[in-house]
Nucleic acid binder design. Structure first.
Lengths: 349, 349
DNA sequence: TTGAAAGCGCTAACAA
DNA sequence: TTGTTAGCGCTTTCAA
């Protein structure tokens, strides 16, 4: 490996050049330098050139914190993003998409993980507000965001993602959890399944409720009875899912199919079915796709969400609000798609 | 769904309360309010209480951009993070780990994706510098970071991750790419393989070079000749990998094992082997683990990196620098681990 | 221990 | 078109 070290690491004490230094070197007034640097059309070509040359020579970098402080609108061109867990693929796709939209509009994005804790959510939102972010994209963990009402009233735009705002009026971008789930369960029913297990996330999470509702919708539509014994919540820990699966398959009248209402649960179920060598016997449909779902045996049938689309939409809606759109808030619903790969097409034995 | 809308979306024109308002309401001077809010020990208990009460009553939120502007050190308590692609699991694990360390120390993190473009890297770095981030964690795409020498000299701390700094002196946190690769290939050799293909990323990427070097080390150590025909670069597009795999298996003296030097390549190879029904015939070891690698058939043997550890270390090193550590820069090497799952233990037929 | 005043780097109002 | 001046919200002298 090359080892040519060209620049020393020692911090130099020379202060950064300011716009005053640029103005002085260019031999113009402070305001002219500012206008020239921002490309305001009023300033003459000659002075503009002189200012830019001086700035380049000094390696001048404008101080955006100072600028935003003085700006009429006081905007920072920064947005905040509150994620549940930035290491999870759904979140990171969201983050990437929002970031791309933001950068394209000259905004930067601060982000943090909240891990389903309403308390961390509130604290992080306050920190972002203290940094005067112009807007917030938030996957809410709490069930009452009215604590943020004050920030909202004071001009911080809010867009909710994946889960709706509660007790506050704001835009939201959501998947069609209920419809996607209903369709998946109807598919299982059409194959002859009558004992379909539902394994879901903690019911305090809005999407978990919606997906359960979709499951119930399907049963009702097909005239099947809802059996509590087939329904289990809060099994998103991979090891928990496998254990619970065992119980569901061990019932007197056991499940012949499983609807796993979250991707970590789906993965837990796959592991459990493998262990029992039942992966070709028990049908499985998962909500939310995941990488390599097509490479396991059998490949996994899923209701696929579109985090990329959701994130892009969230970014666009937020930026429209920041650019002054004051139309009534809206709820955008992004369709899911049903991807048949094999595990969901197994008939009851 | 509940629809109780409690707070209107209309932005209110009332300006945010400032520290002056707090001081006035508490009946103290501006400086006293500032000291009280920051918990400086000099201020009397009574005044402190009065100030805090006033702040609470006004729902006062300090303006951190204004504060950092005036601060002696001018620090923003913000760090920037330059990732290649924040939607990739390695990057997002890194991001999460750095974020956790930063938050624990009262810092926020700005981040952006650079997609292996040196130009985007330079532009984003400049934007972060303009926001006066205190430090930067960077997965470099470029091969010359001396353009940032000026920022560095002016006090912005830099920590490189996954790939070393070039033409500039800075801390770096790296995986032991070379050793991990050597061990993997030696393992294949020990099973009797003599024709081992190397499929790697673009050679302009430092890690790709290192992993190739590890492959060569292993051959040399075992006294095998290096055959150019078995080595292919820049196959990180999933569909490309499958095609290239076909060529390698179609040689007059074909490969009996594949070392896939990046996780997207590994996945492409798995797809290709599947298609040709050779997944139980041709051995495969991948560099970098990925979710569900244990659930495909056969389960995939990998050299596993530790992005969580790397990210945590990067955050800690950066924060130490920010807290004044001026010791010589260092290169930290994080061990890889070898995880045997089946695909790498196939003997040549 | 407190407060008045200066000033961080910038943009906006005002004057020339 | 340009320059001078005020002041964004805060922290830090400096003097009381």
């Amino acid at each position: 490996m090359k080892r040519e070290i060209t620049f020393p690491n020692q911090p130099e004490s020379r202060p950064r050049p300011t716009i005053r230094d640029v103005a002085a070197l260019a031999g113009v007034g402070l305001a002219t330098a500012s206008r020239a640097l921002r490309g305001e059309p009023v300033v003459s070509e000659e002075l503009q050139a002189r200012v830019l040359r001086a700035a380049a020579q000094l390696e001048y970098l404008p101080n955006l914190t100072a600028s935003s402080l003085r700006l009429k609108t006081r905007e920072t061109h920064t947005i905040g993003m509150l994620l549940q867990n930035s290491a999870n693929p759904f979140s990171s796709a969201l983050h990437r998409a929002v970031g791309d939209v933001a950068h394209a509009h000259g905004y930067e994005v601060l982000s943090g993980s909240v891990d389903e804790s309403a308390d961390r959510e509130r604290r992080l939102a306050a920190k972002f507000a203290a940094r005067r972010v112009d807007g917030l994209v938030i996957v809410p963990a709490s069930h009452d965001q009215s604590y943020r009402a004050n920030e909202l009233r004071l001009g911080m735009a809010l867009v909710f993602v994946d889960r709706p705002a509660e007790r506050i009026d704001a835009d939201a971008i959501l998947s069609d959890n209920r419809l996607g789930s209903r369709q998946a369960v109807l598919r299982l029913i059409s194959l002859g399944h009558r004992r379909i297990a539902f394994m879901g996330d903690d019911l305090s999470i809005w999407t978990a409720q919606e997906r359960l509702q979709g499951y119930r919708d399907a049963l009702e539509q097909a005239g099947l009875v809802f059996d509590e014994a087939l329904v289990r919540h809060d099994v998103a820990q991979p090891d928990v899912a496998a254990g619970v699966l065992g119980e569901l398959l061990g019932l007197a009248d056991p499940a012949t199919a499983v609807f796993a209402a979250q991707n970590l649960i789906t993965i837990g179920v796959i592991r459990g079915l493998r262990l029992a060598s039942l992966q070709h016997t028990v049908a499985l449909i998962g909500f939310d796709d995941f990488p390599l779902s097509d490479l396991v045996e059998p490949a996994v049938t899923v209701v696929s969400q579109n985090p990329q689309r959701i994130g892009t939409l969230a970014g666009e809606v937020l930026l429209q609000r920041l650019e002054g759109d004051t139309s009534p808030t809206q709820r955008y619903v992004v369709e899911t798609s049903f991807i048949e790969r094999g595990s969901g097409e197994i008939r009851p034995s």
